[in-house]
Amino acid sequence: MKVVEQIKAPILDEMETFEQKFSNSMSSKVALLNRITHYIVNRKGKQMRPMFVFLVAKMLSDNEKANERTFRGASVIELIHTATLVHDDVVDDSNMRRGFFSVNALWKNKIAVLVGDYLLSKGLLLSIDNEDFDLLKIISVAVREMSEGELLQIEKARKLDISEAVYYDIIRQKTATLIAACCSLGAASVQPNSVHVEKMRKFGELIGMAFQIKDDLFDYGETAIGKPTGIDIKEQKMTLPLIYALNTATDKDKDWMINSVKNHNKNKLRVKQVIQKVKDLGGLEYAEKKMLTFKMEAIDILQQYPNSDYKSALELMVNYVIDRKK
């Protein structure tokens, strides 16, 4: 049994019902919109976000079935996140998403931007129509932070002067805030205004931090095929292994690395040499140690809750984030 299937096992019924509700939440009177949203729904990924929502909600609830608020929370976060992905593909001029053509590749940028706007409004209305204002606030804060994180990264990438503290700020906003929102949403849907909402937000944030550092490591060859990709270096993205290496390198090596990333990032040999330099300076070990620290802090929060299938699935999820191969 695959790990993702094991994680999903305790909430299988909820996930099936969710897919139907999520699909319905996108419906429109415009045939073109329905065709595009149908395309989006049928190309879903692993669905980690709704899984976090349901597992947290069920861990904190005595009910046999998830309540309607939890379903709405999962739908809203998926609607709004899908909207941001559709817009991202336009911004990045990307033709592929999860191995399929992106919306902008098939229907052009103008339609993709409008579809993103439509999904965003559907998410907002789903919350407002049901007076889930607390859930809407959690999601709105997440979207604001994601935008700020992206812009902070763009601002800092120009100078390549990112400190470790700024790096954590960027990934906290850019990546971790969405997983944090899923977990706090799950808690708020069953235990509104309780201490669990903040506890689960922190839990999700820690997983998100570990998740992003794992992504950073993939660029240095920590993949199933073991080949470094160097894509982050080509795109001048400051990752934790690189930041650590720059902070520990001699002035001469530091200047050479910055010059390589800034001016020679398309040169395959130079990128390879930078990757080797980062490895030699212990950048990978340092990043891995930090990743495991975030993981352990997340597990510590989970340990405060009674044992259940949902808690076990969340523990599996934390380990999956660290052990995944892509």
Rank of each mutant, 00 (worst) to 15 (best):
D251L: 05
A298Q: 12
L125S: 14
N267M: 04
I36C: 07
A105C: 07
T177D: 15
Y168Q: 05
N193A: 13
A9V: 09
K277E: 05
M1P: 07
S27F: 10
A298P: 11
A31F: 13
Y320K: 13
R35F: 10
M291D: 08
V195K: 14
D92Q: 06
S102M: 03
D215I: 01
S308K: 00
K108F: 11
K137Y: 13
L55K: 02
L126W: 09
P241I: 01
K174R: 06
F133Y: 15
K8Q: 12
T223C: 02
Y310A: 03
A287S: 13
T239V: 04
A287M: 02
E235V: 08
E285P: 01
D89E: 10
Y320S: 07
V271L: 00
E131C: 10
K268E: 09
K65C: 10
A31Y: 12
R172S: 15
L125P: 07
Y305N: 10
S312W: 06
R49C: 11
A9M: 14
Y244D: 01
F101Y: 12
S127D: 11
A176Y: 11
L126V: 05
V4P: 06
R97H: 13
I207V: 15
G186D: 00
N130L: 03
M26A: 06
E155W: 09
G283I: 02
D280K: 00
N193C: 08
M200L: 12
K21I: 08
E150N: 03
D280I: 00
N265T: 01
A210R: 01
K44G: 11
K2N: 15
R72N: 02
K58P: 09
V56P: 02
G282I: 02
L281G: 00
L284Q: 02
S147N: 13
D13P: 07
H196I: 00
A105F: 13
I162C: 05
L269T: 08
E297M: 13
C182T: 05
M317G: 06
K290C: 09
D251M: 03
F100P: 05
Q304P: 03
M257S: 00
G149S: 03
Y168I: 02
L136T: 06
K325W: 09
I11H: 04
L178F: 08
K159A: 11
E297A: 11
P228N: 01
S23A: 13
V113K: 15
D93R: 14
R43V: 08
S184W: 04
G283E: 00
S94E: 11
E222T: 04
V91K: 11
E150W: 08
K289G: 08
I207T: 09
R201S: 12
E68L: 10
V86L: 09
L284N: 01
N104K: 06
R35D: 15
D251T: 03
S28A: 04
N263F: 15
